[in-house]
Design a protein around this nucleic acid. Structure first.
Lengths: 243, 243
DNA sequence: CTTCTGCATTTTAAATACAAAATCAAGCAT
DNA sequence: ATGCTTGATTTTGTATTTAAAATGCAGAAG
C-alpha cells in the first residue's frame, strides 16, 4: 500500500498525460516515470511498481511495460527478467561520466559547426547569446519580460548541432534525455558561468576554429555534469532509501 | 501474404529462439529481428510485420512489441505511432558517422587504458595480439587450430574497455550492438589492416601514451566504419526494395 | 532457538481479446 | 478519364486474462 501513495501524489500530472492524443501512450508514460526519477520522487534502487503506475495513470500495463523497456534502454532503470524493474543506481560518478561522453559528442558537433555553420546561423547564434547574456533583473516578479534562459540555451545548442550528421544528432538527443536539465536553479551562479562558456564556444565558431570549439564545448559539458550531479544531490536523489 | 514468407525462410533460427529459458522473450525476439536487419533479410524502409514475426516465432505480439521498442531505441527501426515500425533508412553516411562516434567513445576508453590498465592486463593484451597476428594458415581446412579472430578481437577490446567508467562501458555496449560486426569476411585484406591497427593501439597503451592510444583507436574505428558500410553494401543492404 | 522446507501471496511475463485508426478499393460523380 | 467519397479490410494500440516465477511467511524438524 505504501508504494501506491508514492505515485498517487502526482495525480495532477497523471491527468495531463491521459489528455494527450491517442497513440503513443507508452511515450507519455515513459516521460511521466522519467520525470519521477529525475525529480527524485523515485529513488535509485526503488522498485517500479507497474500496478501502481497503472492505477495512478489509469492505463493498462501494456504501455507501462513498453515505457519501462524504453527507460531500460536509456539506462535510467535496470530491467531484470522475471524480477521487474528498479530505478538505476546511478552514482555521481556516473552522472559526471555521462556528461563527459555528452561533451565528446557535442564537441564533435561544435567542431563541425565551426567549419560548416552558415553565416546567417552564426549571426543568429550571436543574437541569441546576447539575449542570454542579459542580466536577470533581480526582481522575482514573474512576467518581467526577462528572457527564458532554458529556451535560449536550448536554441543555442540546437543551432550548433544543426549541421551535425544525422547519427550524431540522434545520439545527442538520447544523451540529453536521460539526465537532469534543471540545474539552472541549483548551482550557485551557474547562469554567469554558462554565459562565459557560451561566449567561448561562440567566439571559436565565429573564428572558424574547430579545435577551440570542440574544447570549449567539452569543457562546458564537463562543468555542466558537475552542476547536474550537484542538482541531483540537492534534490535528495542520493538520500538513503529508508525502507 | 508475401510478407510472412520473408520471415518463415528463417524458421530454423526461430526454433533456437524459442528454446531459450523462459523470461526475457522480448530480448530474444529483438536479437532475431536485429539479425534479420543486419543481414539484409529485412531491407531499409521495409515494414516490420508483427503478425508475421508472431507466426514465424510462435510468440504472441506482446514480446514482439517490446522488442520493436528496443530496436527503436537502438535506432535500427523507426517507430511511428499508429502506423507501425519500419527498418530505419540508414545511409552509408549514417554507418560511417556511427563508427566515428564509436571511435570517440572507444578512444576515450583507450586513453584511460593507457594510463590505468594494470600491467598484467597489458601483458594479456600483448599475448592475445600475438595470437591475433598469427597468419591464417591458408588451408581452408576447418579445425585447423587456427585462431578464432572474432573472439580474439572481442577480448582485445574488452580488456581495453575494462578500466573505463561504468557509463562509458554502457554506451560502448549500445554502440556496438546496432551495427554490423561481420565485416571480417568482406573487406579485402581486413585482417592484416586490423592487426596493424591493434599493434598501434597496443604500443600506445604499453608506453602509457594516452593521446596516441586515443588517436589509434579513433582511426581504427574510422576504418572499421568504412569496412562495415562496405560489408552492408556487399550484403545487398542498400538494394532498392522492389515492392 | 535456529534453520530448512513447503505453501500462500504477490507480481511479473506472455497470450488473447477488443477497439480504433489507417489503408485500400470500389463506386460514384464530375 | 480522373478525382473524391465511402465502406470494407487490415493492422496497430490498449486492455484483459492466464500462467508462471519469485518472495515471504509459517510450521516442523533438528
Amino acid at each position: 500500500m505504501s508504494g501506491a501513495d508514492e505515485y498517487s501524489s502526482k495525480r495532477a500530472a497523471a491527468d495531463a498525460v491521459r489528455s494527450r492524443t491517442r497513440g503513443g501512450l507508452s511515450e507519455e508514460v515513459a516521460g511521466y516515470v522519467r520525470q519521477l526519477i529525475l525529480t527524485g520522487a523515485l529513488l535509485p534502487g526503488e522498485r517500479i511498481d507497474q500496478e501502481a503506475i497503472s492505477a495512478d495513470l489509469d492505463v493498462s500495463r501494456s504501455p507501462i511495460r513498453e515505457a519501462i523497456v524504453m527507460l531500460g534502454k536509456e539506462g535510467l532503470v535496470d530491467v531484470k527478467p522475471r524480477r521487474g524493474a528498479a530505478v538505476a543506481n546511478l552514482s555521481p560518478e556516473d552522472i559526471v561520466d555521462h556528461y563527459e561522453l555528452f561533451g565528446l559528442v557535442a564537441g564533435r558537433a561544435a567542431a563541425m559547426a565551426a567549419k560548416n555553420l552558415p553565416p546567417s546561423d552564426v549571426a543568429e547564434l550571436r543574437a541569441i547569446h546576447q539575449q542570454f547574456a542579459k542580466p536577470a533583473t533581480t526582481g522575482t516578479g514573474v512576467s518581467d519580460g526577462l528572457p527564458d534562459y532554458a529556451a535560449l540555451n536550448d536554441r543555442f545548442h540546437f543551432i550548433i548541432n544543426s549541421v551535425a550528421p544525422r547519427r550524431t544528432k540522434w545520439l545527442l538527443g538520447h544523451l540529453v534525455k536521460s539526465v537532469p536539465s534543471n540545474y539552472y536553479e541549483f548551482a550557485e551562479g551557474w547562469n554567469q558561468r554558462s554565459v562565459d562558456h557560451h561566449e567561448r564556444i561562440l567566439t571559436a565558431i565565429e573564428s572558424g576554429d574547430a579545435d577551440a570549439a570542440r574544447s570549449a564545448m567539452e569543457d562546458h559539458l564537463h562543468e555542466s555534469g558537475i552542476a547536474a550531479a550537484e542538482a541531483l544531490r540537492a534534490q535528495g536523489f542520493w538520500q538513503p532509501l529508508v525502507d
